[in-house]
């Protein structure tokens, strides 16, 4: 199978490339953590693109159970059909609804499976998937059949750290923590998303962006996805780079700051700091 590399659309650091390639080579799941907005979910899309494989996404919610990924037995539908005298009712297989993992296991070509935000689910969720992810097979109790993966899929799991994951589960995964990109990497990321953007605008915008990230006490620091949104807005509004320029390390309230600061406490805090900084300079 081909190896994963940075693409022109997705800038991956060398350590991320190694982690992804190790997971592919040993056919183990890769667990990805990191600040929100650093491209955890996008990674799965890019890996699928780079390997030229279809991607199956399984988004986890607080109510999701491991069983949902395998299959569900729709008892209520069968009960209803039984009441109406539908002949379908005699075959239980008609009421087995396939889940995302079954889909991935049955696929005639290898696939990439994204299990997104695994920490959203119940604390027992990862434990319930141990065997399935290890052996890539499971048993359907109702029809007494065993589903075995035709090709072991590349599994990418993301987590936002809302829950600790069990040790037994972690032991089976490769792990990568996406660090917040430094300025240089950030410039490459911006270039990858908006090629040919004016250099001076990018420079001023990154100045403002990194200065905001340094403001102490922000509840939610803006991340890559916020920066990209903001740049897009700046481009749409066609603002000159001078509008972003601050005098001698002073804080200014950047135009369209709503894209960067996402809650009102942060906006208040920032306005107060900007005011103090202006007054100190006057």
């Amino acid at each position: 199978m081909a190896a994963f590399r940075s693409t022109e659309r997705y800038v991956a650091s060398r350590d991320l490339e190694v982690a992804v390639n190790a997971a592919i080579a040993l056919q183990r799941p890769l667990l990805v953590k990191g600040e929100p907005g650093t491209g955890k979910t996008v990674l799965a899309h890019e890996v699928a693109r780079a390997l030229g494989l279809p991607l199956i996404e399984w988004h986890i919610k607080s109510t999701t159970r491991a069983q949902h990924g395998l299959y569900e037995y729709d008892a209520v539908a069968r009960l209803r059909d039984g009441q109406l005298g539908d002949p379908r009712v005699h075959d239980i297989a008609n009421y087995i609804v396939r889940g995302k993992l079954w889909e991935a296991f049955e696929s005639p070509v290898p696939v990439v499976v994204l299990i997104d935000e695994i920490d959203k689910a119940d604390i027992e969720f990862p434990n319930d998937l141990l065997l399935e992810l290890d052996r890539m097979q499971f048993h359907v109790y109702e029809t007494r059949q065993t589903v075995v993966a035709k090709h072991r899929p590349v599994v990418i799991i993301t987590s936002n750290n809302e829950k600790e994951l069990p040790d037994a589960f972690l032991r089976r995964c490769f792990f990568h923590y996406i660090r917040f990109p430094d300025r240089e990497t950030m410039e490459r990321i911006v270039e990858a998303h908006y090629p040919g953007l004016r250099k001076d605008l990018v420079r001023e915008a990154l100045d403002v962006f990194f200065r905001i990230r340094e403001v102490p006490g922000l509840r939610k620091k803006p991340a890559t996805s916020e920066l990209l949104d903001w740049l897009k807005l700046l481009m749409v509004e066609d603002l000159p780079p001078e509008a972003l320029r601050a005098k001698e390390g002073k804080l200014i309230i950047p135009p369209l700051y709503g894209a960067l600061l996402k809650n009102e406490q942060d906006v208040h805090l920032f306005e107060r700091l900007a005011f103090l900084s202006r007054r100190a300079g006057a």
Partner: peptide, 26 residues
């Protein structure tokens, strides 16, 4: 993973690989 030559002859790559394989918590 070493046997599968994920990181061959490069100390930095070996560092990244062993980190991904051995550490499971940031």
């Amino acid at each position: 993973a070493m046997k599968a030559r994920v990181a061959a002859y490069d100390l930095d790559d070996f560092y990244y690989l062993s980190r991904a394989a051995l550490v499971k918590d940031e």
